[in-house]
Design a binder for these strands. Structure first.
Ligand SMILES: [Mn+2]
Ligand SMILES: [Mn+2]
Ligand SMILES: [Zn+2]
Ligand SMILES: [Zn+2]
Lengths: 124, 124
DNA sequence: ATATTATTGCAATATAGTTGCATTAAAAGA
DNA sequence: TCTTTTAATGCAACTATATTGCAATAATAT
C-alpha cells in the first residue's frame, strides 16, 4: 500500500529537481536512457502526480509536461498559471501569471490552463 | 490543384455552421455515421483549416476541436481567445476574451491558447 | 463526352500513453 | 539476518487519436 523509494524514482525526481523547466516523458527518457523502461517513467510520473509532488500539464501540442510543485498547498493544487513553450529549444516554463477569465452567466469554472508559444531569450 | 465541392464537404460544413459550439472529429463522425469514412472527415477538416474556413484548436484533454472562423481576416487568423469545455456535456465554446500575457524580458510570443473547463449553464 | 486530377475508402502506420502479467526487490516484522 | 508481503519493474500487448499510401471514384474544365 505504501509507496516505496527506488533507484528509478530517485533518478527521475533528481532530474526534475535539477531542471529549471518542465519536462516531457520523452525528455526524461532521453536523460535516463538504458537505466529504466519507458513504461516505468510513465508510471513514476503518474505516481508523483498522485502524491502531489509534481504537476502534469498538457501542452498546446498535445504532450504532457511535468514539473515540480512549488507553491502548492498539500490540500489545494494550483497549476492554473500560464505556460510558455519555446518553439526552438522546446523549453517549457511556468509563468507567474494566473489564468483568470470572466465566464458567461451561469458557468462554473473547474480548471484553467494557458499556453504561450514563441521564442525564449536564448533563441531569438 | 483547385479544391472541389463534394457531398462530404457540404455535409461537414453544414454541421459546423449549424453547431453553436466547436466540434471534435469524434462528434462529427457520430453525426455523419455511415455517410463517409473516418479518414475523410479528418481530411476535410484539415482541408478547411488550410483554406482558412475553420480553426483547429487542441483542447486541454488532447483532442482537436474545430469551429468556423468568425472574426478572422483572410490575411490574419486570430484564434488566440480562450475556450471553454463543459465537463458534463462536452460542449466547447470560444470565449470572447483574448489570451494575453506579459512575457519575461527577451521572450517573443508567437501563439497563445487558453482553456477553461467546468460546467456550462445547462449542466450545473 | 472525355480527360484531368482532387477526393474518397480502406488498410496500414505513427505517436503518446496505458494495461496485464510474471518477475524483482523494497521494507516491515520475526 | 532471514522471511514475508506486496509495491515497483520490464516487456509485450493494447488503446486512442490522427496521418499516410495507394488504387478506385467522381467533380470540374475542355
Ligand atoms: Mn501542484
Ligand atoms: Mn481563423
Ligand atoms: Zn528557447
Ligand atoms: Zn454542459
Amino acid at each position: 500500500m505504501k509507496k516505496r523509494s527506488t533507484p528509478a524514482k530517485k533518478e527521475v525526481i533528481k532530474l526534475l529537481k535539477s531542471s529549471e523547466s518542465a519536462m516531457s516523458q520523452e525528455m526524461i527518457e532521453e536523460k535516463v536512457k538504458g537505466k529504466m523502461d519507458r513504461v516505468t517513467i510513465y508510471r513514476i510520473l503518474n505516481s508523483f502526480c498522485e502524491d502531489g509532488i509534481i504537476h502534469r500539464i498538457l501542452s498546446d501540442e498535445g504532450k504532457y509536461y511535468f514539473a515540480l510543485c512549488m507553491d502548492c498547498e498539500p490540500e489545494e493544487h494550483t497549476h492554473d498559471h500560464f505556460h510558455f513553450r519555446c518553439l526552438t529549444c522546446q523549453k517549457v516554463e511556468c509563468l507567474p501569471e494566473q489564468v483568470n477569465v470572466e465566464l458567461p452567466e451561469g458557468y462554473k469554472k473547474k480548471n484553467a490552463t494557458g499556453w504561450i508559444t514563441g521564442y525564449c531569450n536564448n533563441c531569438n
